[in-house]
Structures are given as structure tokens and as C-alpha cells.
């Protein structure tokens, strides 16, 4: 087949757009190896000093650890609550369940600054400001929509006759949920868990409002670093995170194929 101008336009255009998407993210790589003490390209030699700084600085390591464990707790809570919610709504499938599903996804639509103001005022009343529990609660709420959406998507392929059959053979509601519906929802739960973890791990606006000194998360350290500028340690952290993302994506792609 002859290659038309039309086809060439879309094909090269697509690669250009993908270059625009991916290449800018990669600039942190050369910066992270700079031998200078400010953000810039390496001058005379490549240096690992900013990686060394990250791995020896208790502030960076502490913030990383906080983000990881808070993210895992959030992902667990959101997955349990969100899965139960989606399964309940799937069984009900009535108007009320539809309204409930819309209520649960409001955090996607409300601007981050607005919800963070809401959190701040409420958390002050509850005494949750600058506590890990306060952050976990806020992040769980922000992660719930993603779990509910992905579990629901997984259930859309489930034949409604299967749970009916289980019930007519004498299984209780909870036995049916546990033995028939949850296994079908498993891929959705896994996706939801990952989404929930990432939502918490990357969340910045909320923690800026509801934490002070006691709770330091990785995004907060990066945010403060960008504000004060010029510490290339951020580039080292960013490179590590991007490398992790790449590895995780590659594993995901390989497992699927």
C-alpha cells in the first residue's frame, strides 16, 4: 500500500506528541548527576553526591518512609471500603445506589484547594491537624473514588446469574459475596489498590493544609525544595521515582503479554 500524506501526518505527529510527553520528564536524569551544588547540567564530571545526600539525609528518608507506609495504609483502607461499596451498589443497581456512586466520586470533581480548606477547618475541630491519622483519613477519602470505579468496571463483566445460582443453592448473602463476587472483582481491586496508593503517595495540596512540622511526606519535601530552589537532591529523588515507575510499568506490560 502506498503511504499517503495523511498517514504520514498522523504517524509522525503522534511520535512528536509522545516525545513531548516523555522527554521533558527525563531531563531530571542528567541534572541528578551534576557535580554542581545548584540545578544545572554536569560541568566537569558526573557525580553521585546528590544521591548520597538523599540516602544519608534523615529528613528525606523519613519523609519517604512516611509516604510509603501512609500510602499502604490508605490503599488498604480504601480498597476494603471501596470494594464493599462497589459490590453493594452492583447488587442493588437501583436509583439510590446510583446516587451513592455519584456521591462517592465527588472528590474527583471538587478542586483540590477547596476540599483542602474543608479538611483544614474540620480537622482543626477534630484535633487531627498535623497527625498521621488525619492524613490517612483525608487520603482515604480522596482514593475511594478510584477504587469504586475500578471495582465497578471489573464487575460489569460478571454474569448476574452466578450470584443468583449461589443463593438458590443455599449460600448466604455474605458467602455469595465472598466466594462468587469478590473473586470476579479481583483485577479491579488490584487496580484500585495501586491507584489508591499512588493518590496518597503523590498527594500534595491536602498535606500542605492539614500538616505542619510533625508529618513530613515526600511530596511536601519536594514542594518545599522547589520553593527554596536549587538543591539538586530533588532531581535525584525524581530520577529514582521515575526509574521505579518505569520498572513497575515494564513489569506490568510483560506480565500482560
Amino acid at each position: 500500500m502506498q503511504v499517503s500524506a495523511f498517514r504520514i501526518f498522523f504517524q509522525t505527529g503522534a511520535w512528536l506528541v509522545i516525545a513531548f510527553l516523555v522527554l521533558p520528564i527525563l531531563v531530571v536524569l542528567p541534572i541528578s548527576f551534576t557535580d554542581t551544588s545548584y540545578i544545572g547540567l554536569p560541568k566537569e564530571a558526573l557525580s553521585l553526591q546528590h544521591y548520597a545526600n538523599y540516602f544519608t539525609d534523615p529528613d528525606w528518608l523519613g519523609a519517604t518512609w512516611t509516604s510509603v507506609w501512609v500510602g499502604l495504609v490508605v490503599a488498604t483502607c480504601a480498597s476494603v471500603l471501596g470494594t464493599a461499596f462497589a459490590i453493594g451498589c452492583w447488587f442493588l443497581s437501583d436509583r439510590a445506589a446510583m446516587v451513592a456512586r455519584w456521591v462517592l466520586i465527588t472528590p474527583i470533581l471538587v478542586p483540590p484547594v477547596v476540599q483542602s480548606l474543608g479538611f483544614y477547618r474540620f480537622w482543626v475541630k477534630l484535633g487531627l491537624i498535623d497527625t498521621h491519622f488525619g492524613v490517612i483519613l483525608a487520603h482515604t477519602l480522596l482514593a475511594l473514588p478510584y477504587v469504586s470505579i475500578s471495582v465497578f468496571a471489573a464487575l460489569s463483566n460478571l454474569d448476574r446469574n452466578l450470584p443468583r445460582a449461589a443463593r438458590s443453592l443455599g449460600a448466604s448473602v455474605m458467602q455469595t459475596v465472598w466466594a462468587v463476587v469478590v473473586p470476579a472483582a479481583r483485577p479491579g481491586i488490584a487496580t484500585g489498590f495501586i491507584f489508591a496508593f499512588i493518590v496518597s503517595f503523590d498527594e500534595i495540596v491536602g498535606v500542605l493544609f492539614i500538616t505542619v512540622r510533625n508529618v513530613q511526606t515526600l511530596p511536601k519535601m519536594i514542594w518545599e525544595g522547589i520553593q527554596d530552589n536549587i538543591d539538586p537532591t530533588i532531581a535525584a529523588v525524581a530520577t529514582l521515582l521515575i526509574a521505579l515507575t518505569l520498572i513497575a510499568t515494564a513489569i506490568g506490560v510483560l506480565r500482560r503479554s
Partner: peptide, 30 residues
């Protein structure tokens, strides 16, 4: 049966209403 399905829905829904919807409505009050 419906009651038991609502038991699955309610935990997530109630924390969303109490700790998210109410605080956002609180902004209107302020």
C-alpha cells in the same frame, strides 16, 4: 437481602458524607 447490600455500601458512603461532604459544605457556611 437489600439490608445486607446496604451494609456493604454504608461504611464508605457514611465516612464520605461525614468527613468529606460536610467539610466541603462547611466552606459555604464560612
Amino acid at each position: 437481602e437489600k439490608v445486607s447490600y446496604w451494609m456493604l455500601v454504608l461504611p464508605a458512603l457514611s465516612i464520605m458524607v461525614c468527613f468529606y461532604i460536610l467539610p466541603v459544605l462547611g466552606i459555604w457556611e464560612i
